Computed example of a mutant assay.
Amino acid sequence: MRRSFPLILLSLLILTGASLPKSGPIPIKKPPAEVETQKAPTPEEKPAAPADDTKGNQKQVPTEGQQPVPQPKPTEGNEQPAKDQKPVVDEKDKRADEKKEEEEKPAPIVYPPVEPENAADYARCLTDLKAIGATFVEAKRIDDGKGCGIDKPLEVTNILSGVTLAPKGLMRCETALALARWTKETAQPAAEVAFDKAIKIKRLNQASTYVCRLRNNATTGKISEHAHGNAVDIASFTFSNGTTIAIQPRDEDGTMDGAFQRAVTASACLYFKTVLDPGSDAAHETHLHLDVIERRNDYRYCR
Rank of each mutant, 00 (worst) to 15 (best):
L7M: 09
E174P: 06
E252P: 00
A268V: 04
I234R: 09
K86H: 01
R300N: 14
S267W: 00
D253E: 05
H289I: 09
V211T: 14
T243R: 15
P113C: 01
H287V: 03
D257Y: 11
I132Y: 05
Q60L: 08
P21F: 12
T219D: 13
R2L: 12
R250N: 07
K140W: 02
H289F: 10
N241G: 08
D281Q: 14
R3M: 10
I201E: 01
L204I: 11
A40T: 15
F5Y: 09
C148K: 14
I223E: 00
D53C: 08
Q38A: 10
P50F: 06
T42C: 06
L10H: 01
K184Q: 13
Q66K: 13
Q188F: 00
P43H: 04
T157W: 04
T54L: 02
R203D: 08
E117L: 03
R181K: 12
V137Y: 09
E103I: 07
A191V: 09
G242V: 06
I109L: 02
Q67I: 08
T219G: 15
S240T: 11
T135D: 10
A259L: 10
R296G: 07
K202M: 06
T209C: 06
D93R: 13
A259F: 13
T274I: 10
L20Y: 13
L179T: 08
P278N: 15
A227R: 07
T37V: 15
P249Y: 02
E117Q: 12
P249W: 00
L160V: 14
E104F: 07
P32L: 08
